[in-house]
Design a protein around this nucleic acid. Structure first.
Length: 144
DNA sequence: CTTCTTACA
DNA sequence: TGTAAGAA
């Protein structure tokens, strides 16, 4: 049956790199349906499903080494547990990022304040001189 | 021209 | 993970 595609076609179809597909094979996760006489890897429907399965696991940040276990022996209950734990992690990450966002805002405000204070300080010290020099033809009064 | 392998950053 | 060289 000619319902098989090459590795580049599969990579395009599933939006993954060819290198990554070979890498999956090296890790014992995804094998070609068969290999042609020219050593080309050929993939069928089963491999496409298998790959989408792998991609889902990867989106859940499941390490490649552990994907093998999930792929072989995993019950529906195990999957629910995996999905829920991933959901928890995502929520934690969101919380951490919001904290970071808050922190960045804080730092930015402090920066603005220090710059303003700096400018006011310069004006206080160099004010009179700056006014005097500003009448000259010197383009850069603050150098003096 | 496409893929494979191997190696390297 | 991406890129490159050389062979098939």
């Amino acid at each position: 049956m000619k319902e098989h595609i090459t590795i580049s076609q599969l990579s395009q179809l599933m939006n993954v790199s060819v290198h990554q597909l070979r890498y999956f094979e090296e890790k014992g996760i995804l094998y070609p349906s068969y290999t042609e006489k020219n050593q080309y890897r050929m993939y069928g429907l089963d491999e496409i499903y298998q790959l989408s399965h792998i991609l889902l696991l990867r989106k859940l940040n499941v390490p490649v080494a552990q994907i093998e276990e999930c792929l072989t022996s995993y019950t529906a209950d195990d999957y629910n547990q995996l999905l829920e734990s991933s959901l928890e992690k995502v929520r934690d990450e969101i919380a951490n990022l919001k904290q970071l966002e808050q922190f960045i805002h804080k730092v930015l405000n402090e920066h603005h304040n220090s710059i303003q204070q700096d400018n006011e300080y310069r004006i206080r010290l160099l004010g009179p001189r700056y006014l005097k020099l500003s009448g000259t033809n010197c383009p850069h009064p603050h150098f003096y």
